[in-house]
Computed example of a mutant assay.
Amino acid sequence: MTFDPSISIAVLGGGQLGRMMIQSAMNLNLEISCMDPDPNAPCKNLASHFVNGDITNYDEVLAFGDVHDVITVEIENVNVEALEELERRGKKVFPQPRVLRTIKDKGLQKEFYLEHDIPTSEFVFIHSKEDLKDYTDLLPAANKLRTEGYDGRGVQIIKTEADLNKGFDAPSILEKFVDYAKEISVIVARNEKGEISTFPVVELEYHPEQNLVEFLFSPSEIDATIRANARKLAEKVITAFDMVGLLAVEMFVMKDGSLMVNECAPRTHNSGHHTIEGNITSQFEQHIRAILNLPLGNTDTKGSAVMINLLGHPDHAGTAKYQGIDEAMNITGMHVHLYGKKITKPFRKMGHVTLVGQDLQKLKETARSLKESIKIIA
């Protein structure tokens, strides 16, 4: 097989995930075009061709994708109907539109798990805020918008009946809390040949208020049997979807050691950023390998890694400035990734820091210190 780097790749979405995908694609002499509604999206100055357009608009997505060979996404909220038409026209669209249609709707996603015997938490469909009153027996629970929720948005925690007014007056699901021990993530890739490769399991620690990943720890410190089962479960999920591309599968580890799928994302993911420095193959390179039907890369870790999300300061909005970055650069094994966003907002994802080394406990201590010292202000 001869590798042809002139293949034309289109990405719907121009955020930080697309930006890091482009950085990886450059190593293979691949050119990537991006479309995003933000004229100053992070991909703007790195993409070989950037289109300022609406990725939810049928005509705009169709026109953008029709001049490319392979179309992929870095966000789920795209026009699936246009992608289906592009697929009918013979374009390679990965993940496949039918997969996106299911995963972008949290209700359909949960039903999919039930249909394919994939363990997940108890849930009910909610049509309006009034419906919540009928399901107080499920509390405490999470009320999640069925579509357009991301980065902690579109989720409300309903602990008691007094919190019902926080619920969404829109199509959503009410998902019963489960008594879990840890939250983990497994990223799995699959190419057109059906080859599957999983990344080692990582542990996630979330911001207590914003439902955003605050820290990521690799490798996970859970039992080896649970780790193996988690990787098998991720393989089961991507196989059930018959999906080509990269899939991030977020799971709960229950106190008895069993596993439950929380939700998944059919793209590169926040829980895989550490792989750029921490693993032999990064998630971004793996995604490119998968959608181009290339051999999947080795996912072994190079050592231990901790990732910290850099979020906009809660009291600042405006042109971004970074406090504490220069001091952090004195730390051996510290890698800064800033996403090219000129404007900071409260809790906006502005970048991440990855610490790599051999002693995970020391890396955790350093990471918690950095979290306090690095501030993104205006």
Rank of each mutant, 00 (worst) to 15 (best):
66 D>V: 03
48 S>M: 08
306 V>R: 00
110 K>G: 14
173 I>C: 08
130 E>G: 05
212 L>H: 02
33 S>R: 07
284 F>P: 11
326 D>N: 14
35 M>S: 07
204 L>Y: 04
215 F>H: 03
164 L>H: 02
310 L>E: 04
118 I>W: 08
79 N>Q: 10
229 N>E: 15
85 E>L: 10
256 D>N: 14
271 S>M: 07
315 D>T: 13
378 A>Y: 05
148 E>F: 14
238 I>K: 06
291 I>K: 02
156 Q>N: 13
283 Q>G: 09
182 K>N: 10
94 F>E: 07
230 A>F: 03
211 N>K: 08
351 G>H: 06
140 P>G: 05
271 S>H: 04
281 T>Q: 06
131 D>W: 09
354 T>I: 05
282 S>M: 11
89 R>Y: 11
83 L>Q: 05
11 V>C: 13
110 K>R: 10
220 S>M: 04
124 V>E: 00
12 L>E: 06
242 D>K: 14
241 F>K: 09
24 S>L: 02
153 R>A: 09
77 N>S: 14
361 Q>E: 14
23 Q>K: 14
29 N>C: 09
224 A>E: 15
314 P>Y: 03
302 K>V: 10
222 I>F: 07
370 L>T: 01
306 V>A: 01
168 F>D: 00
148 E>W: 06
217 F>V: 13
308 I>G: 00
248 A>Q: 02
95 P>F: 00
192 E>W: 01
177 F>L: 10
17 L>C: 05
224 A>P: 09
305 A>P: 07
95 P>D: 00
365 E>S: 06
133 K>W: 01
19 R>F: 04
291 I>F: 09
270 N>M: 02
219 P>D: 05
351 G>P: 01
90 G>D: 12
174 L>T: 04
235 E>F: 10
194 G>F: 07
69 D>C: 11
50 F>E: 02
6 S>R: 09
171 P>W: 04
266 P>Q: 00
329 M>Q: 15
59 D>V: 13
87 E>N: 12
52 N>M: 08
58 Y>P: 13
150 Y>M: 07
27 N>L: 14
339 Y>K: 03
237 V>E: 08
347 F>M: 08
184 I>L: 13
375 K>E: 15
317 A>C: 09
95 P>S: 02
135 Y>A: 00
288 I>E: 01
78 V>Q: 03
138 L>H: 01
278 G>P: 04
51 V>N: 08
168 F>W: 14
25 A>H: 07
316 H>C: 13
186 V>Q: 02
348 R>C: 03
78 V>M: 06
148 E>L: 12
158 I>L: 15
236 K>S: 13
289 R>D: 01
36 D>Q: 09
191 N>D: 11
77 N>K: 09
186 V>I: 10
160 T>M: 02
364 K>E: 00
45 N>S: 11
147 T>C: 14
276 I>K: 04
264 C>M: 12
113 Y>T: 05
46 L>V: 07
243 M>S: 12
264 C>T: 15
